[in-house]
Design a protein around this nucleic acid. Structure first.
Length: 858
RNA sequence: GCCGGGAUGGCGGAAUUGGUAGACGCGCUGGACUCAAAAUCCAGUGUCUGUGAGGAUGUGAGGGUUCGAGUCCCUCUCCCGGCACCA
């Protein structure tokens, strides 16, 4: 046995052992229950970051823990390989996206393997390879024929200088990130998944997922946004014909308070009104400026302009003006809203700004409307009743909605309607590095899906990226083709798919990554699905997880996968954040400095008082602590830690630092502490191996066993709830307890160390593996059972109780375990501290919490 | 703006879910070992006050419920994530 802790040797030995034994190859032939443990696959950016280390360590801890608990574990890994950064890298370094991606994959795979993850690499999936995306294209054609995929126009960010479509991320303060030109909205044709058809199912499915965090389910529910309302029309006259302006509202009870109607700038009525109204046309143009991101739209100053068109209120017959406004979104409902300034905060603000009429139609307990400022109760639908609403006066919310909906229906002008906030999923991207959309445009036959036998449509990999439009659109050899239906000349679609499509079904492909006859091999998919544990960043709470759930339902409809939901249990990990440092450059521009190059000075209490750059010893400014990012240069490279301390230290630190679902602040100092613990563990192992020391006395042995099993009990509880930081702390407590013992030649040491090594092995598998073998516990710790608590060791006949007076701690009391309430009350009253505070008086009340405390109220 | 989270010593965090606030670790202070340093080991470490035993105070701010609140309720502040083309 090595005298010193040498992580490099230990780790390569352990990894070799797992390789040779093919320990992590997962097979379907097993009599154990299956456990499919999946971490969100990485985008191959080139280097592992701390978020990856955290994500994959969590997954590996759960995998190894379940393996020891007797499960047949499958933990796969792959690459979310298509995406925008590859095109950006191509622009910056003049490397084809494919070459860049493949070399990143090779580098990251090596890093992941160095972490010692128990991954079945035989199941590796790479989404940019035709053997993967051909099945995505296959599903696309199926869904296109079924009508689940359809085509319509939609708004994108347009850079008028670079003549290219920009991602929201590439729009900075309303300008293109490279050109600096003001971005415009532009309507282009795109393919959409009809996810709204599954809205009800996606919503209901959330109730079948007790293993998901409540916050994620709440976010998804709100995102789907089911609302019960009324869709109705304001009739108006157009060239002698009666037209209808449709709106949707969840507050039909306030219909009598409508004073205007607002439509989105893209609404057909706005377009029509702008003809012959240059000012309005100009305003609509102005609304088209800026990007399409909702956060920007919603924080914009609310602006509007009258159309000059009046419509008829369907109940009162009054004329109400129609306004165009930037606060109405074309994508939701009808792209038009009835405005009730008295009972909607946004309408109120708008009406105040433009001097529009405000008409109260609801009152809570007779309260009078005051149009000077917005009051909470204006929008109170629980307690309000209709006022100034003619025949509806006195009705409550539900009564008024029912009555008004019925009247509108009788007039043929509306009806109750369930509406979803969820929009159909647009998947066309005007980019190169993505999965080609398998459609051929034929002048005669229209949009023709590729026949199965012609799939895949292979993406050419040797291209030059210019930043202006997709290279595919400039490659006749790619787009010139013939129509599969009529055989005439036709043009291949040059848009690619949203990369969310690839990440929506990879979890299923892992079950049979080699399948050449379909998306998945049904038998193997049936064996492994659903995923038992999914682990990934909280930032994926809505989009990715919703799309993957949607895809599972689509694949289920194709008979490919079992069940309704893909992920039984979900663990959302918090982000890794780090301090930022900078210096002011010319013009106040901040030059960000990596934490690794900075020396932080602290005072004698350890408080940071300043920081200097190691290179020149001159001060730098300490910025905030933020999400690790390239732009703030505060990313910490995990490789440096693995190289210096080994993978076990890196894994232990990241697990010990915080519970997995919590945000984690990176701090190098803690790494040192984790390394120190593993060194201590190793040294203790060496000491036990050598044997010796004084004999352990029976009382000490009993107390130590009590301590170890108490800690184990808590640790097992924490493990079950995925609180790995306290599991690590439990391991430290056990080592502390063992080190306090005078000798090592004792059963309690053998037992304690065996518990400690097994408890630690999911977190620090290499050192645990080596010590387990070296100390003769067995050949492979992974084959050992998970340690269980010996309840006998936990038996005590006396316990400590806390004595409180008026809820404040005043003393302790050692009592027999089964002492009666009366005895305890008596003992408490007799306690010195209680006597002193009672000062001869009597206690008002004595509260006994069994096994915990006695509170004397005086 | 909307939706979802979070805030506990100098720092990361713990608290058996309403019952001893600060486990475990980092840092810091003092000591041992050493020619010295590193490493290691021992002791101390929320704040204020007191020579001391002790006392007071303390979980973002303010209020409330309770014998008892970090935990429950109300109001507020700040920070973080998402907002449909970053992944």
């Amino acid at each position: 046995m090595q005298q010193n802790y040498l992580p490099k040797d230990i780790e390569s030995n352990a990894q070799q052992h797992w390789d040779q034994q093919q320990t992590f190859r997962a097979t379907e032939q097993s009599d154990k229950p299956k456990y499919y443990c999946l971490s969100m696959f990485p985008y191959p950016s080139g280097k592992l970051h701390m978020g990856h280390v955290r994500n994959y360590t969590i997954g590996d801890v759960l995998s190894r823990y379940h393996r020891m608990k007797g499960y047949n574990v499958m933990q796969p890994m792959g690459w979310d390989a298509f995406g925008l950064p590859a095109e950006n890298a191509a622009l910056a370094n003049n490397v084809p996206p494919a070459a860049w991606t493949y070399s990143n994959i090779a580098a990251m795979k090596q890093q992941l393997q160095a972490l010692g993850l128990g991954v079945d690499w035989a199941r590796e999936v790479t989404t940019c390879k035709p053997d993967y995306y051909r099945w995505e294209q296959w599903l696309f054609t199926r869904l296109f024929k079924k009508g689940i995929i359809y085509k319509k126009t939609s708004s994108v960010n347009w850079d008028p200088q670079d003549m290219t479509v920009l991602a929201n991320e590439q729009v900075i303060d309303g300008r293109g990130w490279r050109s600096g030109a003001l971005v415009e909205k532009r309507d282009i044709p795109m393919y959409f998944f009809r996810i709204t058809q599954y809205a009800e199912e996606l919503l209901a499915g959330l109730d079948t997922l007790p293993g998901w965090p409540e916050q994620v389910k709440t976010m998804q529910r709100n995102w789907i946004g089911k609302s019960y309302g009324v869709r109705f029309a304001f009739p108006y006259d157009l060239n002698g014909k009666t037209e209808k302006l449709w709106v949707y509202t969840t507050r039909a009870d306030t219909t009598m308070g409508v004073t205007f109607v607002a439509v989105a700038a893209e609404h057909s009525l706005a377009t029509r009104a702008a003809q012959g109204n240059p000012k309005l046309a100009e305003f609509i143009e102005e609304c088209k400026r800026g990007g399409v991101a909702e956060a920007d739209m919603a924080t914009m100053e609310k602006k509007g302009m009258p159309t000059g068109i009046n419509v008829t209120h369907p109940l009162t017959g009054e004329q109400v003006p129609v306004w165009v406004s930037n606060y109405v979104l074309m994508g939701y409902g009808e792209g038009a809203v009835m405005a009730v300034p008295a009972h909607d905060e946004r309408d109120f603000g708008f009406a105040k700004k433009y001097g529009l009429l405000i008409k109260q139609s609801i009152a809570v307990k007779g309260q009078r409307f005051d149009d000077a400022a917005w009051q909470e109760w204006y929008a109170d639908k629980e307690h309000g009743t209709c006022v100034h609403s003619e025949k509806y006066d006195g009705l409550t919310y539900q009564q008024a909605v029912d009555a008004i909906a019925a009247d509108l229906q009788a007039k043929g002008l509306g009806e109750k309607k369930v509406q979803f906030r969820l929009r159909d999923w647009g998947i066309s991207r005007q980019r190169y590095w993505g999965c080609p959309i398998p459609i051929i445009h034929c002048a005669k036959c229209g949009d023709v899906p590729m026949p199965d036998e012609q799939l895949p449509v292979v993406l050419p990999e040797n291209v030059t990226i210019t930043g202006a439009g997709s290279p595919l659109a400039k490659m006749p050899e790619f787009y010139q083709t013939t129509c599969p239906q009529c055989g005439g000349a036709a043009k291949r679609e040059t848009d690619t798919m949203d990369t969310f499509v690839e990440s929506s079904w990879y979890y299923a492909r892992y079950t049979s990554p080699d399948c050449t006859t379909g998306m998945v091999d049904k038998a193997r998919a049936q064996n492994w699905l659903p995923v038992d544990q999914y682990i990934g960043g909280i930032e994926h709470a809505i989009l990715h997880l919703l799309y993957a759930r949607f895809f599972h339902k689509l694949m289920c409809d194709e008979g490919l996968v079992p069940g309704d939901e893909p992920f039984r249990n979900l663990l959302t990990q918090g982000m890794v954040i780090a301090p930022t440092f900078y210096r002011e450059g010319t013009g106040g521009k901040k030059l960000w400095i990596n934490p690794a190059e900075v020396e932080v000075k602290t005072d004698e209490r350890g408080r940071p008082v300043g920081a200097t750059l190691r290179a020149d010893g001159q001060p730098v400014v300490i910025g905030g602590t933020e999400k690790m990012s390239k732009s703030k240069n505060n990313g910490v490279d995990p490789q440096a830690i693995i190289d210096q301390y080994g993978a076990d230290t890196a894994r232990l630190f990241i697990m010990f630092a915080a519970p997995p679902d919590q945000q984690l602040e990176w701090n190098d100092a803690g790494v040192e502490g984790s390394a120190r613990f593993l060194r201590r563990l190793w040294n203790y192992g060496v000491k036990v191996g050598n044997g010796g020391g004084s004999a352990i006395e029976a009382g000490t042995r009993k107390a130590t066993r009590f301590e170890i099993h108490s800690v184990l009990k808590q640790a097992n509880h924490d493990m079950a709830k995925h609180q790995f930081n306290t599991v690590a702390s439990a391991a430290m407590k056990i080592l502390n307890a063992l080190e306090r013992l005078a000798g090592v030649d004792d059963e309690v040491v053998k037992e304690g160390l065996s518990i400690l090594l097994r408890l630690l092995s999911p977190i620090t598998p290499h050192v645990s593996h080596q010590l387990w073998k070296d100390l003769g516990y067995g050949n492979d710790i992974l084959a050992a059972p998970w340690p269980e608590v010996d309840e006998v060791a936990l038996y005590q006949d006396e316990i400590d109780l806390v004595i409180q007076v008026n809820g404040k701690l005043r003393g302790n009391l050692r009592v027999a375990k089964d002492a009666s309430q009366a005895t305890l009350q008596q003992l408490a009253l007799a306690h010195d501290a209680v006597q002193k505070l009672l000062a001869g008086g009597t206690a008002k009340k004595i509260i006994v919490v069994p096994g915990r405390l006695i509170n004397v109220v005086i």
